[in-house]
Each structure stands twice: as structure tokens, then as C-alpha cells.
Amino acid sequence: MDLENNTMEAIEKIGNTPDKLIEVLIQCQSLNQQNYITEEQLNLISKGLNIPLSKAYGVASFYSMLSTSKKGKYVIQVCNSGPCYVNNSKTIAKAFQDALGISLGEVTADGLFSLEYTSCFGGCQIAPAVKINDMVYGNLTEEKVWQLVDSLRKEAV
């Protein structure tokens, strides 16, 4: 029950007052290789912070960086806000779909990648940009997308 212990540990470290909910959720999500918060974790958080389960779930589903469904080990987020759009982000999204063989909103069968659109994360200077977990990659071309996916695949092995 590593996940349970780690979740309890995270709550203890961050604090068990209701205002720490978001910080706790962010931390708990990072404990999980598939980058999401499990139902079991939500239950633990609700007890630990003494808040209703519906509240924990409500907040977890409100914020777009938090997820209650399985994602990839690498969460690929393609910016689709104005500045990246005028720098051809749609082509980049298409290239990722081709390179990964999945559509936006899906996870690859091996659980390695998930692909989605995201709102602006401030990478406009190097648009079109994508965010993969905590890393930002910019000035992308279709060719670079394929290279990037390739190098991440190798990194994972």
C-alpha cells in the first residue's frame, strides 16, 4: 500500500487544513505514475483534511492541471490559445497525433503518453509550444515533434 502511505505522508507534510487541499491534490497526483488522483487517494484526502469527498472531487475536477482519470507517464499538452494558434499550433497537434497514433484526449496503449490541448502556459515567446509534464518545448515543427516523441520513448526505456 505504497500509494496510501505516500498520500498520508503528503498530507502530513503539507498540512491537513482545508485550505491546503489544492497543494495536497497536486502532490498526490505526482505520486502516481499515470499522473492522476485515484478514488482511493480522494477518500484519504477527504478524511485527512476533514472535508466531504464531494468537495475533494469537485476541486480535483475543476482545475485543469488535476485529473481524476488515468493519463500517460508523459502528459503532452499542446497550447491552443491565440499566440500559439497564429504560429500554427494546429499543425503541431496533428503531428503529435500522427506520431503517437492517438487522438487528443487519449492515452497510448502502453500508458506512456497522453495528448491534450491546454490553455496558454506562457510559452508564447517560443510558440508553437507544448508542455510535457513540467518541461516546456518550443519553436516546434512537425519534424521536431517526431524527434521529441522518439527521444521520450528512449528515455522511458
Binding site: I22, S64, S119
Partner: peptide, 8 residues
């Protein structure tokens, strides 16, 4: 320090 979690 408090972190946001992706909400404009």
C-alpha cells in the same frame, strides 16, 4: 507560496 492548478 500557493500554487494554482490551471485555471485562468
Amino acid at each position: 507560496v500557493r500554487s494554482g492548478a490551471g485555471a485562468y
